[in-house]
Design a protein around this nucleic acid. Sequence first.
DNA 1: AAACAAATTAAACAAACGTTTAATTTAAAC
DNA 2: GTTTAAATTAAACGTTTGTTTAATTTGTTT
Lengths: 206, 206
Amino acid sequence: MELNDKQIQILEATEKLFAENGFDGTSVRQISKAADINIAMISYYFGSKEKLLEALLTYRMSDFRMQLESAISKSNDYFEVLDDIVSLIVKRIHRNRRTHKIINFEYSNGCRNIDFDSYVENKKENLKVIENFVNRGQKEKIFIQNVQIELLMATILGTYFHFYYNKKFYQALLNLTDEAAIERYVHATLTQHIQQTIKALLTNAV
Amino acid sequence: MELNDKQIQILEATEKLFAENGFDGTSVRQISKAADINIAMISYYFGSKEKLLEALLTYRMSDFRMQLESAISKSNDYFEVLDDIVSLIVKRIHRNRRTHKIINFEYSNGCRNIDFDSYVENKKENLKVIENFVNRGQKEKIFIQNVQIELLMATILGTYFHFYYNKKFYQALLNLTDEAAIERYVHATLTQHIQQTIKALLTNAV
DNA sequence: AAACAAATTAAACAAACGTTTAATTTAAAC
DNA sequence: GTTTAAATTAAACGTTTGTTTAATTTGTTT
């Protein structure tokens, strides 16, 4: 789908408002005001509020697998690759955290008329790529056998999102006084914690 | 706050609907219909939709710290306690997953007029209890030093919630054909994965 | 400059929203 | 049996919702 400047303008405003106030908490009038366009333009370009969300998802959720595969084939050191994967995922998910938040909440109840098929397909393919990498590491006796690979991603993404969903809590707890401090914490401490977690899990049979 | 049967009836319906459709996605008319009460009773008992949510939170979010402290003092084996803590948290969070979902989404955007103070206070106290336990283990050289204790909870809760938010994805992936199969997976495989993760993280310096 | 489709607008639509009202029923106290 | 307060009701309140309409403007092609 080709998107013109005005459509992108609408999608950016949509992402921000949906993430802040939720799908139902955001009115198309708010979006039209934030994007500085007439309210009828949203129906004109996207058809409906539901379709608008779908357009946002495909706009944001592409080309991740390529990045992932590139990270895996960049080095022969399994731990280096592992760190790179975690770092890549955190960076990526952090940049698109707003869209992911929307997905989490709209996908989990499921009842709505929103098409998540391409999101799910993406997720499955990404998991396969990781699975292949871990399996290779297991064959070379670098990683242990007894690991739920499908839950690796849950631990990586889940840890990040729990931090994000409780940002205000951690902000107070860790004295992260401004957005810059949060950014630093995410890309340093939080990323390291997840890297450490995944490496420990893949090597240490307790 | 003393709650009569009718009020509890309302809160149960509220929890289900808020978790399924979100705060804004749920109308008080839906709640009144699900709870089988007149719509005016909600204002009559709780004052407003916002206050109704606050009542739900305090109704669900009490007495956890007691359970936590009891689990910690039950054994002298640090790993046994660790497993118990994870198991307790998963059980508890799974039972109250609907309310936690609501909190995650309403607390993270923050802008609404909902009072989360007692929730945050609870969270802080629980973290302190865990911190004390881990610190003791560190002094006895059972746990390693280089661990972000404040992110331990993020990994435990985050892993669970990522599974929950992507339930449909994992259901398809793991052939969990009915709710009973999901229950079993949560309390067996998922819990074990998290236990393994936490123990590995606390013992293995990679 | 005329013609034309695409872009943009203000206004209107019925439906649903959270909340309040004022009247009625219920149940316990006297 | 009367009184009194709590519980419950149907109806109405003014807003806001997502979407559509029909008219107007814009920019390009002829």
